[in-house]
Design a binder for these strands. Structure first.
Lengths: 116, 116
DNA sequence: CGGGATCCAAATTGATACTG
DNA sequence: CAGTATCAATTTGGATCCCG
């Protein structure tokens, strides 16, 4: 009701830019998956149904470079062991994300795809 | 902390599907713009910087068909007067959306684009 | 196992021109 | 004014093959 609307509608607005980066299907799902704790590449691939190796790698790297995810190599030998974990910053997304998920859960009939 | 993670990671999960539909840059911005009240096509185009007429029309129609937005034609004469407004359902997005925006505002340094 | 490199098909977008 | 139609230009995604 008393929401103050910032000028996030401006292209230069940093809030809008952050928002645009978050508004991604895979990012949201990955963050969600990672809330359960650090996980490996193959693990995430299995958990996040539908994601391909390429997209997974790309998304993780983007998120890492945005400071949301941390990548740790545990072994250097060829059978590499790599884990991804949310950073402190990434974890702060839990609450707002939960709010969205709660909404999506509460309004299952909302975004039904109506045949044109 | 005590967040129960639903299996939104499954492709068939309706919550995930709703989420995927919401996770769109333009949708988020449009909803935000529309929180200020019903607005016209040209008005929205001006407010939501960077959106093109085509994408605006498409996004509005998608949101309309998802039950988030309502379209009302006020005049039938050639210089048409069309207004778009959030539906009751659409308005319920205000809170979760505000949570995300608040996050984005609080973490301006978060999603900085680091030159590769 | 993790992921870089390619090649290619498919989906998005941008720019214009046109209509009720 | 609002919106459709079209076509070219990107972007994005999927499928493979390969390497440390």
């Amino acid at each position: 009701m008393t929401l103050t609307i910032p000028d996030i509608l401006e292209e230069r607005c940093t809030t809008r830019q952050a928002l645009e980066r978050l508004a991604s299907k895979w990012r949201v799902l990955l963050i969600y998956a990672l809330l359960a704790g650090p996980q490996r590449h193959a693990e995430l691939r299995r958990r996040v149904a539908g994601i391909t190796q390429k997209v997974l790698t790309e998304t993780l790297r983007d998120m890492e470079h945005d400071g949301l995810v941390e990548r740790q190599v545990l072994k250097q030998t060829p059978p590499q062991h790599v884990e991804y974990a949310l950073t402190t910053l990434g974890k702060t997304l839990q609450e707002p994300l939960a709010a969205i998920c709660a909404w999506a859960t509460e309004h299952p009939a909302g975004l039904h795809r109506v045949a044109s």
